[in-house]
């Protein structure tokens, strides 16, 4: 029983982390129909920011996630203004290739500046802290990241569904020209959406520094899983992405423990394939 609880909780915590990493990507993809290929590298940049703030200034990632969130908001907005905007309306693959170029640039810049070394913050406030729940040991850094994930996803959902700004975002996502005719500045909406997408992954990366090592390749598998989460949940659906992330976390955890650890990602991508074949718009897509 305690094994089952442990695996269940590990799966939920992994799922919450994936939800936090995927939330921003889901928004960008849903509203702008643009795949931000540099999403994983945004995550890496956020982790480096919190790592260096922790290493040099000794500020705990529990606080510096604010800085990485703000920086990534700016990076997201700048990416839109300087890279994505110019490629919109051109060949269908243009924004994807532009952000792919950005991802290469960011990865190689960090590789060059910081070397491929794995960098891990030791002695953080949450480092190594655990508590027991129903016979399962819960890692406090992962638990705190999970709580933040719930807050960020709920805040995004509230923003999109309950505020005038959110209605403008939804209107832009549904019909850009019609939204412009209604007086919505869609340029600003796109800028904001890219910024918010960056901020979400900035918060995720910041908090991950409390328990994961930073290196130039860290974003790779996370971004792949984020793409699966968004496609599985339904493009642009924040609750869909959340549910898909939890599902992926649980599938990964249960397959890893009860079937074979090497098959955990196989199971994740197999479920994705099945859902895409049966319901191409994803679980919650419209």
């Amino acid at each position: 029983m305690s094994n089952f609880m442990q695996v269940l909780i590990d799966g939920l915590l992994s799922g919450l982390l994936y939800a936090l990493v995927s939330a921003g990507l889901s928004m960008i993809w849903g509203v702008m129909d643009v795949i931000n290929f540099a999403h994983g590298e945004f995550l890496m940049v956020a982790m480096y920011i919190c790592y260096w703030l922790g290493f040099i200034l000794k500020i705990d990632p529990l606080f510096t996630w604010v800085a990485s969130g703000i920086f990534l908001f700016i990076l997201g907005a700048v990416t839109y203004r300087w890279i994505v905007k110019g490629s919109l309306g051109k060949a269908a693959m243009a924004p994807l290739l532009a952000t792919f170029g950005l991802s290469m640039l960011l990865k190689n810049f960090c590789m060059n500046r910081f070397s491929p070394n794995f960098r891990l913050l030791s002695g953080t406030l949450l480092d190594g802290k655990t508590f027991e729940f129903c016979g399962a040991i819960i890692s406090l850094p992962q638990f705190v990241t999970g709580i933040f994930s719930l807050i960020v996803v709920a805040a995004l959902y509230w923003l999109v569904k309950k505020t005038r700004l959110g209605w403008a975002i939804q209107a832009t996502a549904m019909d850009k020209e019609a939204a412009e005719l209604m007086g919505i500045d869609t340029e600003k909406i796109f800028l904001l959406v890219f910024g918010l997408g960056g901020a979400c992954v900035g918060v995720a990366g910041g908090l991950m520094t409390t328990y994961l090592a930073v290196h130039p390749e860290v974003g790779g598998l996370f971004s792949l899983i984020a793409f699966v989460v968004v496609a599985l949940g339904g493009f642009g659906s924040i609750p869909g992405a959340f549910a898909a992330a939890i599902l992926i976390g649980l599938v990964e955890s249960f397959t890893g423990f009860y079937v074979a650890a090497v098959l955990k990602y196989v199971a994740v991508f197999a479920i994705y394939l099945v859902v895409i074949l049966v319901r191409p718009k994803g679980l919650f897509g419209w």
């Binding site: 094994n3 442990q6 695996v7 590990d10 992994s14 390749e217 790779g220 598998l221 996370f222 899983i225 990964e252 955890s253 249960f254 397959t255 890893g256 423990f257 074979a260 650890a261 090497v262 955990k264 990602y265």
Partner: peptide
Amino acid sequence: DVPFNNGATNLNSEVQKLKS
């Protein structure tokens, strides 16, 4: 006997297998 995929996002289930 616990093989794992290198570069994984986590090793939770792998370590849980060892622990159990």
